[in-house]
């Protein structure tokens, strides 16, 4: 019984974390058709930024709960700065190029950003674990959960909900859908597609940085964390269907629960779970669970 509860809660926590990490990637792909390899770097910058800001904040001796605000502020600053620089300074010149070339552009950006992290923060790990302990724990018999982990579930729901409302219930969302559906037609109707792209990319970048910032208190932030996250986020996005936000949510849940089940019941297969799920889904439903098929041009 306890094991079942553990699988459920652990699965939800891991799924929420995955969703927070992957949602920015899928948003950018959905709108711009760009598979952003540098998403991992945004995650890493978010984590480093958060660790740094929480560190400064804690040293200043201000109200401890404010540290949470620091996480969000760090994600916002990192995401906006890097997002604008990358979109305006680099990707803008690539839109007429092949999709795969753009993947390589973001791969190049990823390589550069990896070393930039090293130049800014050095190679020693940083940590900002203060917020992690602050929320206390919840106990169910032998099982102890960290409330910070549980709060990730809330964060994931909030982020997913806000995004859903923004896309489906606002003017900006309507424009976005028009651009997703037919870029040229939207332009003809006077939509400023270029601005929609910039905004989307920046929002996606902030989400990527937020994933990192929210992870920062749980981990020791170290060079190379971005690499590990890219493949995970890709897998989730592919499972859910590239570009679909609800898909990312379902994909995260499937991966999260299967992984938690593996850890508790059969730890040997933990490493495979995510790729097994991914290949299974792709073989049965190539476009992913929520993916759309594209019409072929004649």
């Amino acid at each position: 019984m306890l094991t079942a509860i553990a699988i459920g809660v652990d699965g939800l926590v891991y799924a929420s974390w995955l969703f927070l990490v992957a949602v920015g990637l899928t948003l950018i792909f959905g709108v711009m058709k760009i598979l952003n390899v540098a998403h991992g770097s945004l995650y890493a910058f978010g984590a480093y930024g958060a660790a740094t800001m929480v560190g400064i904040y804690t040293q200043a001796g201000l109200a401890p709960l404010g540290a949470f605000a620091m996480l969000l502020v760090a994600a916002l600053i990192v995401g906006v700065v890097l997002g604008v620089v990358m979109e305006r300074g680099l990707l803008r010149f690539m839109y007429q190029r092949d999709e795969v070339i753009i993947v390589l552009v973001t791969y190049a950006a990823f390589l550069v950003l990896e070393d930039l992290i090293k130049l800014i923060w050095g190679v020693d790990p940083y940590y900002a674990s203060e917020p992690y302990g602050l929320l206390g724990i919840s106990e169910i018999s032998d099982l102890v959960f960290s409330n910070y982990d549980l709060s990730l579930i809330v964060m994931a729901v909030v982020v997913g909900g806000l995004l859903w409302v923004a896309v489906n219930r606002t003017r900006w969302g309507k424009l976005l859908q028009a651009v997703i559906h037919d870029r040229e037609m939207s332009e003809a109707f006077g939509i400023n597609v270029s601005r929609v792209y910039t905004v989307t990319f920046v929002v996606g970048a902030v989400l990527g940085a937020l994933g990192g910032a929210l992870t920062a208190p749980m981990i020791s932030v170290t060079p190379g964390i971005g690499v590990e996250v890219i493949v995970l986020a890709f897998a989730v996005v592919v499972i859910g269907g590239m570009g679909s936000v609800p898909g990312a949510a379902i994909g995260s849940l499937i991966v999260g629960i299967s992984r938690a089940a593996a850890v508790h019941l059969l730890p040997e297969v933990e490493l495979f779970v995510i790729y097994a799920v991914m290949s299974g889904v792709l073989v049965l439903r190539p476009q992913g669970l929520f993916g759309q098929t594209f019409a072929k041009r004649i």
Partner: peptide, 16 residues
């Protein structure tokens, strides 16, 4: 996995 960083499920399993 190496460099996983996220051990919440593993810790539950160890607690249990």
């Amino acid at each position: 996995k190496i460099f996983a960083g996220q051990y919440s499920s593993e810790i539950s399993a160890l607690l249990l």
